[in-house]
């Protein structure tokens, strides 16, 4: 495959444009369902697109005394991480033969990049509220990455492979006890990775008024928002692939619809969690992830070893 095709794939399908559009549509679903749960009307279908496009034409204000390059490159870092993750994930999903050794680990790192970008951006902002948000984000990463990685060991043990293609070929883990436990753990970690309630501490509108993103405006803020919307698409898709058998494009419309429904089910779970809980404190979040959640993932690994 030549580089032009690869570049086109990266920019259009299944890379940036595809992920951005599906991500924004997903964020509309999130906003609309949230609104209905809260007895509100909710935004029109194109509202997420309007938001991003509007931000692209707004003024960019860089706080005086902040490192310009770092401040402006942080959102790009997050966006490219998310795009690359989606690109790799979808290439393998469309053609499992393109899986390479250790692609799971690459994805794991790429999925952390948006959070790292938020930390960099917050410290570049030179704002006390932003640095609080950044330090919370850092603690949160330390808290949720451990159980997340442990939960990912379950499909690796089951499929006896580190290749995503072979994990996909192994199929759904779901009826098994270890698979269910690992999925629950990773859903909780996903909620924290998406920084949604109850783990929205880095942004915490009512405490830090936007936290990490407080100094951002215009296109950089738009890129952060876009990254967040894309992650809302990539992370549930990643979980569907790893734990729930993924989407099979070879199996005709029925199996594609089934894969799509799995994705929607995860989105519904995310939205429900985010609307039925208040925000936790950072110490409570760390205790929660290192205590019960890590415990659950360890049990899941043991169960997987014993073949359940």
């Amino acid at each position: 495959m030549d580089y032009t095709t690869l570049l086109l794939q990266f920019v259009f399908f299944p890379g940036f444009l595809f992920t951005a559009v599906v991500g924004l549509v997903t964020s509309w679903i999130d906003r609309k369902v949230t609104a209905r749960v809260q007895m509100r009307v909710g935004p029109p279908f194109l509202q997420p697109f309007y938001d991003i496009i509007k931000l692209m034409f707004k003024e960019t204000i860089i706080p005086s005394g902040s490192p310009r390059l770092l401040f402006l490159s942080a959102p790009l870092l997050g966006l490219s991480g998310a795009t690359l993750a989606s690109f790799i994930l979808w290439r393998i999903l469309l053609n499992p033969g393109q899986s390479f050794m250790g692609d799971l680990i690459v994805l794991l790192y790429l999925l952390t990049l948006p959070a790292v970008a938020a930390i960099l951006g917050s410290f570049a902002s030179q704002n006390p509220l932003a640095s609080l948000g950044g330090s919370r984000e850092m603690k949160l990463i330390i808290a949720y990455e451990l159980p997340f990685v442990l939960a990912l060991l379950v499909p690796i043990i089951k499929a006896q492979s580190m290749r995503l293609g072979e994990i996909l070929a192994f199929g759904s883990l779901l009826p098994s006890a270890s698979g269910v436990l690992a999925l629950i753990v990773s859903i909780l970690c996903m909620q924290a990775k998406l920084t949604l309630v109850p783990f929205d501490l880095p942004e915490a509108e009512t405490e830090l008024t936007g936290g990490a993103f407080i100094e951002y405006s215009g296109p950089p803020l738009g890129l952060f928002k876009l990254t967040k919307a894309m992650m809302l698409f990539i992370l549930p898709m990643f979980l569907v692939c790893v734990f729930w058998g993924g989407i099979h494009f070879a199996g005709g419309w029925n199996s594609m619809l089934l894969g799509f429904l799995k994705y929607i089910a995860l989105i519904v779970i995310i939205v429900l969690i985010r609307n039925t809980a208040p925000r936790v404190r950072i110490d409570q979040a760390v205790t929660f992830f290192w205590g019960p959640v890590t415990g659950m993932s360890v049990i899941a690994i043991l169960l997987a070893f014993w073949g359940w």
Partner: peptide, 12 residues
């Protein structure tokens, strides 16, 4: 509820 991030309670 809003201050705690529990927006559903706020709206309800």
């Amino acid at each position: 509820g809003h201050f705690l991030g529990f927006n559903t309670v706020w709206m309800w």
